[in-house]
């Protein structure tokens, strides 16, 4: 990808370079516009260090889920089960933890590390099912993960049976809601996930294969890449990232209950796509996902700082996201033109 970009600069000059990079530049400009707008509209409360920390806190769980989803989308696949797997993993870790007397769940308390391991095994197993369904049976990922969404939701319901659990192991509690030197652990964990994912995608053979499979599956196969393995692996990565996010989410929110994390599905997909990663695979990366996360975080946070009709907020949020996506698609076509040298 980078070779193509260099060629474009040499042959087409700055204009073509801008066009080829518009997919990356546009989300960044959207973010800049939102920051400037809310800073001017409500400088006293929006433009503060506390609020910046607040935004980072708010996007952390979405970030961990979005990391896994970035791998999946880069492979031109989709995972609709991420939020449900996050939910069932969070519920599982609480189910295997001793709960207060007033919690009316027939659970199975175990030692904290064991509860965490079992919860991780749950999300890994669900990711494996997704992987096997898509690669061995040949079910499209959209359908397979849709079914998995239902399965995970059903498991959540069976675990808690309409009740609410509150306690999680200490390690999960610390990472989900604790601080170190004033910095929330959850922000650090999200940062680490983003960093490791970036390194894997940029500097490892596996990362290159992910881009190859997403960019041109046939070519990747002819080049000797084990496409099925790559697709299976990204689905497992997606599920495990979701599971970790779910466990920390339960600690962050203070309770584990059914249908708690549903909103993370669209938020995570939106973060990846708004950031500039192509839904058709092969283009984008963790850098784009970070920008997408910040666009969503600033937008959601900023709208709560300005005095507008709450009924209007949802519409505004939708319109801004639509604008970002239109720019994304437009940028894609400009890039194609720039690459082919047509105007």
């Amino acid at each position: 990808m980078s070779n193509t970009e260099i060629t474009v600069v040499r042959t087409g000059g700055f204009g073509n370079w801008v066009r080829s990079q518009l997919r990356n530049i546009a989300p960044f400009l959207t973010l800049l516009f939102l920051v400037v707008f809310f800073s001017v509209a409500k400088p006293s409360s929006f433009l503060t260090v506390t609020n910046f920390a607040n935004i980072l806190n708010q996007v952390s769980i979405t970030a961990i889920i979005a990391v896994g989803l970035t791998f999946v989308i880069l492979c031109a696949e989709i995972d609709l089960s991420v939020a449900s797997i996050a939910n069932v993993t969070g519920i599982a870790v609480a189910f295997f933890t001793l709960q207060p007397d007033y919690v009316n769940i027939a659970n199975l308390p175990l030692a904290g590390p064991l509860a965490v391991l079992i919860a991780l095994a749950v999300c890994f197993a669900l990711g494996m099912f997704n992987a096997l369904g898509v690669t061995l049976i040949g079910i499209p990922s959209f359908i397979m993960t849709l079914a998995m969404m239902q399965i995970a939701d059903g498991m959540s319901a069976l675990f808690v049976r309409g009740q609410i659990a509150y306690t999680v192991p200490d390690i999960v509690l610390t990472l989900g809601s604790g601080n170190i030197f004033g910095v929330p652990w959850i922000v650090i964990v999200a940062g680490l996930f983003l960093l490791v994912a970036h390194l894997v995608l940029t500097y490892t053979r596996f990362g290159r294969y992910v881009y190859m499979v997403g960019g041109n599956r046939e070519a990747a196969e002819y080049s000797g890449v084990n496409v099925k393995f790559i697709i299976g692996a990204v689905l497992v990565i997606g599920a495990v990232c979701s599971g970790v996010a779910g466990m920390l989410g339960v600690a962050y929110f203070g309770s584990a209950q059914q249908n708690e994390f549903g909103t993370y599905l669209l938020d995570a997909i939106a973060a990846v796509v708004v950031g500039g990663t192509s839904l058709f695979g092969g283009r984008g990366g963790i850098g784009n996902t970070i920008i997408g996360l910040l666009v969503l975080g600033v937008l959601n946070n900023g709208l709560d700082h300005v005095q507008i009709d709450p009924f209007f907020k949802i519409l505004i949020r939708g319109l801004i996201l639509l604008a970002a996506l239109v720019i994304n698609v437009y940028a894609q076509s400009l890039r194609s033109k720039a690459e082919t040298g047509t105007d």
Binding site: N54, N57, I61, Q257, G262, T263, D267, N300, N301, H305
Partner: peptide
Amino acid sequence: DAVKQRAAIDNMAS
């Protein structure tokens, strides 16, 4: 939505 409300209350608390 529990997640959306939590974000809103985080913003309220700031």
